[in-house]
Design a protein around this nucleic acid. Sequence first.
RNA 1: GCGAGAGUGGCGGAAUUGGUAGACGCGCUGGUCUUAGGAACCAGUAUCCUAUGAUGUGGGGGUUCGAGUCCCCCCUCUCGCACCA
Length: 864
Amino acid sequence: MTGDGAAARCGGPMENYYNPKNVESKWQQVWQDEQSFCASMDSEKEKYYLLEMFPYPSGRIHMGHVRNYAIGDVVARFKRMQGFNVLHPMGWDAFGMPAENAAIEHKIHPAKWTYENIDSMRKQLKRIGLSYDWQREFATCDVDYYRWEQLVFLKMFEKGLAYKKGSSVNWCEDCQTVLANEQVEDGCCWRCHNLVQPKELEQWFFKITNYADELLEWTDKLSGWPERVLSMQRNWIGKSYGCEIEFPVADTTEKVKVFTTRPDTLFGATFMSLAPEHPLVKSLVTAEQEEEVNKFIAAVERQDKADRTSGNLEKIGIFTGSYCINPLNNEKIPVFLANFVLMGYGTGAVMAVPAHDQRDFEFAKKYQLPIRVVIQPEGEDLVADQLAEAFTDPGLLTNSGQFDGVDNESAKEQIAAFLDERGEGRKTVNYRLRDWGVSRQRYWGTPIPIIYCDSCGAVPVPEEELPVILPTDVELTGEGGSPLARHKDFLQVACPKCGKPAKRESDTFDTFVESSWYFARYTCPDYTDGPLDKQAANHWLPVDQYIGGIEHAVMHLLYARFYTKILRDLGMLDVDEPFTNLLTQGMVCKETQRCPEHGWLYPEQVEDGKCTICGQLVELGRTEKMSKSKKNVVDPNQLIDQYGADTARLFSLFAAPPEKDLEWNEQGVEGCFRFLNRVWRAVSDNLELIKNTAIPNTVSGDAAELRRKTHQTIKKVTEDVDGRFHFNTAIAAIMELVNAIYSFKSRQENPGVLREALEAVVSLLNPFVPHICEELWQLLGHQQSVESSGWPSWDESALVAAEITLVVQVNGKVRGKINVAVAADSQSIETEALSEPNVQRFIAGKQLRKVIVVPGRLINIVVG
RNA sequence: GCGAGAGUGGCGGAAUUGGUAGACGCGCUGGUCUUAGGAACCAGUAUCCUAUGAUGUGGGGGUUCGAGUCCCCCCUCUCGCACCA
């Protein structure tokens, strides 16, 4: 312990009143000077890697950040007090669209904008007193970070895990640029409002489908993850067992391959639906249908891609003029194109069974196609003409030739086997999961290290020529596509294979690539020989506790799991999964306010329900996630200025449990500030009294009660914080203990009991409000910091009371209470309960049927 | 549309395994102290109400001695849906 921090420690105590400003700047300085939270691998202690999802450097910290990082900090400090060697790093998810938009809007370079934002956000985070190891900080736009991502890409390319294929993007012809889904509003460009068209581009993909099974299997082993996240991931991967069936096209040698999970309904197929993008469409369309079909395809192309995958739209279709043959019954069925059939799933062709599939049913009704029942529920007789909706439940086969009478689950097997034997189909496994498209036609991202040569094709940049540095001399206008695609010095390069003039790839990576491995790089941020120092990565990984928003339940968390397996298979680390435990936190919301003239208003632009600009009455909007665009934000800086960081932290933790959305309410903040003042006074008012006292072993009366409360609180807070993350109830329990301290009568006679209670309060509160706790701990006369003094433990023998109160119910309704000795047997409890006067009133003259005694809780007397 | 969650006083929330519904905090009401307080402290506060009573956890049904908790149906809200991060 050297440096100015130690000097600050020796400085005079500030016990007279609670002044958060002084207390907080004092301890933040100490932590910085002593590098209190820097983690090292040499420690004897067991490692604990705690991580919150890193922020995008938008420029300002908002309450959602405060909440996320306060939650993480509680765990970090709690684990440190429990004696773990805690790694708790922070960094910046720094590539992405907002920097480009800022560049277009304010004529500032994305790099300048990003790094300035990082500087100001770092300052704000430090004001909150978060216990980060700032030595490990990095931004994903640092060359020393993304260069290793380029290396991993080359290895993936080598192994065939990165490949190129055609894929469609949102294209605005006016701006000559690719739009993100977010930039498409009602099918139009958000800047020029022109119609957005699909455009086919060659793009890079990661072969996440190779890992579909492993990703799925591990969802059963991640016991530290919320079940709802696992369930969403399982459904996203969407593994289904089914059958591929080939339908010959009538009068040709072509075959249409379909995938179905319901081969049992094959006899009920009355038509075929193809995706409009299906490769066979051209050869299937007959001359007389051609014009109509082309119109239809153009109409579907205009539909929002997101809408089409979401199925929110009206189902439409068109007859191609051709027919297919059902291989089981040789029936001729018409082939349609349908907008809800997607090329990306299965084979892009669906055998339509209207009687047993709701989408097909609606389609058949609309286009007057035949409906045939092939599954009958037991004891019913479905008639096709009378169906109001598709029947999708189990039943027995009918109208199905030799399979009639077989139950449909066995029929799935039998029909698949039958087709397989005849070479007309086979059992298959299908996934909903698609390969991960990582190409972005954007500037502010990691350049993809590929060179295109007319003779050699796509040639990887040789490892020794990495990194491919993102050039900074660009101008962003929002039009004409990515600036990289127009940057001659960047583009023009010799082919690494043949030396002829060639062209660099101008696309950059999806920013999800950076966030798929940052947690691994934190273990060795300065390593220069590769992406990861294997020893460090293996020491710290997996992350023991990962904390972040529920909105990342599928994509980020699935990509990070996939990328970890890639790094493992490239021999760069030895873990299978990146995150052992996951906590998904809810959002911070606040009501919105809107002026009829000036639109959304910030809270400070409203006075007495009126707009401060024009004086008009303000409309109260819905309570929504805090966002800049809705202006329903609370600036944490103002809150910290007014009450201090400890109050801001305490409130964000006390107002709701972490997984729940938190609705912002200013008044609750006051209450938290009052509580900290109460704690401060409880310590400072009793300092004289508790000086030089020891904790007694045996006490009686209200001293015994306070002692019991102290130990019960230690137990409750420990259990609530450890793994359960019920911070709000942990804080409530500490509040109860503080209330008990205030009403403690015999303090003069029992100063030791009082001291024990006060020290417990300070220790237990430390993870939540560390500044005030360090100060109070020092006031209590300790030389060591409270964080290094260990987590308090409870004494089992101090927990038990001699007597307990039991509730007596009659027919399930509370009718009285009795006090009994803890050791009382159920026979004597029963006797006592039956003789309770009010209970007597309710059982008098009635037949006693049953008495249920729940030990330690209640007695229920059943009469009738 | 598909997938996943949530719904409890005036408000935020508590009730860990089916066992006293409303802990803790806010707000409100009354009081004490004070020149004064938007400070501090004390008391009260689900609803109806004469209560030792009745009702009450989004709505409707069910299982149970007992349901906020388990089962079925419905309503509302939130998140994700592959180029926002």
